[in-house]
């Protein structure tokens, strides 16, 4: 298969980027999207050029490192798929493919398609945990949790922190990420004691990190590779309101 790539090139965070065109030739139909880029890079290196930089690691859709916006859609058009799990058989021979980084003010470009998502870590450090020390835990079966609650918490916890939700959002809002993280713990009895603190602190950290706010477009839900539900956003709004009221009155 042959493609024409329109790729965002940017030498570093301070320089201005631009779109550059590359041919992708003789790509096997079984190749993954990133393997297609590997082949293109191999050619660029052979021609003495500078290869296209992009983040990737596990290449099995779980680490959340890969982060390409393909034809305007973070992780591409296939539903519930990370960039690394996207395969070329979903494209047509001769297609022109636009490849850009995950764009957001809070995700500054480091080089080419690589962005800095450390803002997510700062949000988690603000309260996305249960304050329990190693060794202090009661028996695992001491607190029964209904299967429904456990499954619900799991569904939120599958978030891989890739940032596609932010990249897809017209407002660069991180609400889907933050709400998934908060509601995973807020759903469980283990997370209950810190529920209010968690909601207030994580939202504050989110605002400080430079993300926009949610205006309920659900673009985030549409591109999420793990199909995290925007129900989490509603839950965080509710938890936040309740926490704010309790804090004001307590």
């Amino acid at each position: 298969m042959n493609f024409t790539l329109k790729v965002w090139r940017q030498n570093d965070g301070d320089s201005k980027g631009h779109i550059e065109e590359y041919p992708a030739e003789n790509i096997p139909i079984e190749a993954s999207f990133l393997e297609m880029l590997d082949i293109v890079n191999e050619k660029i290196i052979g021609d003495g050029g500078s290869p296209i930089h992009f983040d990737h690691d596990c290449r099995e859709g779980i680490c959340g490192m890969c982060s390409l916006t393909i034809n305007g859609v973070p992780h591409g058009r296939e539903n519930g798929t990370t960039t690394c799990q996207l395969h070329m058989r979903h494209f047509d021979d001769g297609d022109t493919i636009w490849i850009e980084p995950f764009r957001a003010g809070a995700f500054p470009v480091i080089r080419d398609l690589v962005v800095d998502r450390s803002a997510f870590d700062r949000i988690i450090a603000a309260g996305g945990y249960v304050s329990v020390r190693t060794g202090a835990a009661p028996d695992a079966n001491a607190i029964p949790i209904t299967k429904e609650d456990a499954d619900h918490a799991f569904d939120s916890a599958t978030c891989i922190g890739c940032g596609a939700c932010v990249a897809a959002c017209k407002n660069s809002s991180a609400m889907l990420f933050v709400s998934a993280k908060a509601s995973h713990l807020n759903h469980l009895p283990q997370g209950a004691p810190e529920k209010d603190r968690r909601a207030l602190n994580m939202v504050q950290a989110m605002d400080e990190a430079g993300f926009g706010n949610c205006s309920n477009h659900y673009e985030c839900e549409a591109v999420c590779p793990k199909s995290i539900s925007a129900d989490n956003v509603a839950k965080l709004n509710r938890d936040y309101a309740a926490a704010a009221v309790r804090k004001a009155l307590a």
């Binding site: 329109k6 965002w8 779109i19 916006t69 034809n71 305007g72 859609v73 636009w98 850009e100 764009r103 957001a104 003010g105 809070a106 897809a168 959002c169 017209k170 407002n171 660069s172 430079g210 993300f211 926009g212 477009h217 659900y218 673009e219 839900e221 549409a222 591109v223």
Partner: peptide, 13 residues
Amino acid sequence: VAQKYSYPATNRA
């Protein structure tokens, strides 16, 4: 805080 894509697209909004 938001940034624009060279190739914009909308999925669901």
